[in-house]
Design a protein around this nucleic acid. Sequence first.
DNA 1: GCGATTGGTTAATGATCCCTAACACATGGG
DNA 2: CCCATGTGTTAGGGATCATTAACCAATCGC
Lengths: 205, 205
Amino acid sequence: MAASPGAGAAVPDSPSRREQILGVAAQLFARHGFHGVSIADLGAAVGVSGPALYRHFPGKEALLAEMLIRISEHLLAGGQERAAASDDPREMLAALIDFQVDFALREPELIVVQDRDLANLPPEPRRRVRLLQRTYVEIWVDVLRRINPDLTAEAARIAAHGAFGLLNSTPHSRTRAGTAEVAALLHRMAWTALTNLTPAESRKA
Amino acid sequence: MAASPGAGAAVPDSPSRREQILGVAAQLFARHGFHGVSIADLGAAVGVSGPALYRHFPGKEALLAEMLIRISEHLLAGGQERAAASDDPREMLAALIDFQVDFALREPELIVVQDRDLANLPPEPRRRVRLLQRTYVEIWVDVLRRINPDLTAEAARIAAHGAFGLLNSTPHSRTRAGTAEVAALLHRMAWTALTNLTPAESRKA
DNA sequence: GCGATTGGTTAATGATCCCTAACACATGGG
DNA sequence: CCCATGTGTTAGGGATCATTAACCAATCGC
């Protein structure tokens, strides 16, 4: 009955179904919130019904956990990669902004779910996600402090969170404008904000 | 039995209880989400138990509705006031940023609830809140376009949402730093981002 | 060809939750 | 003095939901 060929085979956990469930769940969670989507809703949205999901995930919370852990792992890996690609902290910052804005434009639902439904995670995966997020933030903090050595760690952290809020605003402005222009605008805003954190000096390049 | 004097009187709807409920509900909703807080939890948090809340609100959704409508009305009123206080669009923008950052620092729970639980509102109050929010955004859009006439309305809207994301990042950076320094930093970031939206010119004052 | 595994079904269970009902009690105006 | 009103209580109903149970079809390794 499955639409995709080979989906019903006896291969250990058909990967496409899992991905499909995770993708549809992200969209539904983003729209209605974790508690606003029932297992039955989720099953119906992928074309199966209700308890079939337990063949792929041990429970609803485990599904959310995998989703959020994937997101933060993806962001951390991308951040580390961008940060290692250059020695110039300004180039690193530009690459980090590019990476974040691309993600925010490509996957706005994941942005929404990640910070809205983190609280609905069981303690253990929540700690995991928090650690990954903190590590990702530290990449930004280090770059910002290399660009501006006068910056305290705490100020850099606040600035980084502010930049995330700015770049992750994509879900709030449903636009049909070309994503390239939106990306350029958000990149520019983040860049000017983050490279002028202190009143006057610390600019020469 | 009530702790506050005069709280049990036959005065039409003791106002303190309502305010207390709304305040506690904001904190609980911010931490656990609308669906993550039961009527019993909410009652226990204010010292009464369960169904007593129905003496003050017709239902759980109505409580959320009043909360969100209050927030967006407060923001809109404040924005209109700031925008009317000057003729210079740059002064207006500075006043708007001040207002928003003050609110975001003073009431981070309301910031969280407003954009997280809007989807849990019944259709009618949701439309109301959306309209109020849109009107508030338009204030910012007008100011931004007066500062930079080259800006399209859509670009200005994206920039405004980005600025909100930046300024409303306060719940994400739990800081014990002085709020004055945080406010100054966020203000500066928003200001530099919003006054450099286009590549080169359009600056002279 | 066959049997174990994978992925699906419907029915049932136990918990939780919003809300209503029925009742209690203090207070303040007439 | 008394009754109407505001505010609280506990008990229960009806709905929803996550999860488990029991069962079934198809497929791949052998």
